[in-house]
């Protein structure tokens, strides 16, 4: 049997989030009480319990990224997509992210978990076209 974290990763990779029915099935399959599965699934920020908008954009706001212009990138994304942090529209969600260990290529953003490094407004402008 796989460890619970790995089971949850497999579900999230398949569905993009953790659907309730799948968690119920997992509980039956593994004999792990559903309450325990939920307490684990909700503790880790890497797991989502709701279907996510088509584009989830994350901007890393740890010191190396801020020193290299992350806050200016947030402003630019908000303005370009007419979007506020943590306040999704039908298509996009913009989030602040904690360090993902690419500080040597700061500033860093992610779109649907894909990592984009050494970001600037020019590169962002191209990336954001599909999100408009």
């Amino acid at each position: 049997m796989k460890r619970l974290l790995m089971e949850l990763h497999a579900l999230q990779d398949k569905y993009g989030f953790l659907p309730k029915k799948r968690l119920e099935k997992l509980s039956k399959k593994t004999n792990i009480p559903l309450a325990i599965i939920y307490s684990t699934a909700t503790f880790y920020s890497g797991f989502e319990l709701e279907k996510q908008p088509k584009y989830v954009i994350g901007v890393v706001t740890c010191p190396s990224c801020i020193a290299n212009g992350a806050l200016e990138l947030i402003e630019y994304i908000e303005k370009t997509l007419n979007l506020e942090i943590n306040n999704p529209n039908k298509k996009c969600l913009l989030l602040k992210l904690q360090c993902i260990g690419r500080c040597y290529d700061a500033p860093v953003i992610t779109i649907n978990k894909k990592i984009y490094t050494k970001m600037n407004k020019e590169k962002l402008s191209d990336l954001l076209k599909k999100c408009r």
């Binding site: 460890r3 974290l5 949850l8 503790f43 880790y44 920020s45 890497g46 904690q98």
Partner: peptide
């Protein structure tokens, strides 16, 4: 066994 964390 390799275990993948989940952002904590």
């Amino acid at each position: 066994e390799i275990i993948l964390g989940a952002g904590a």
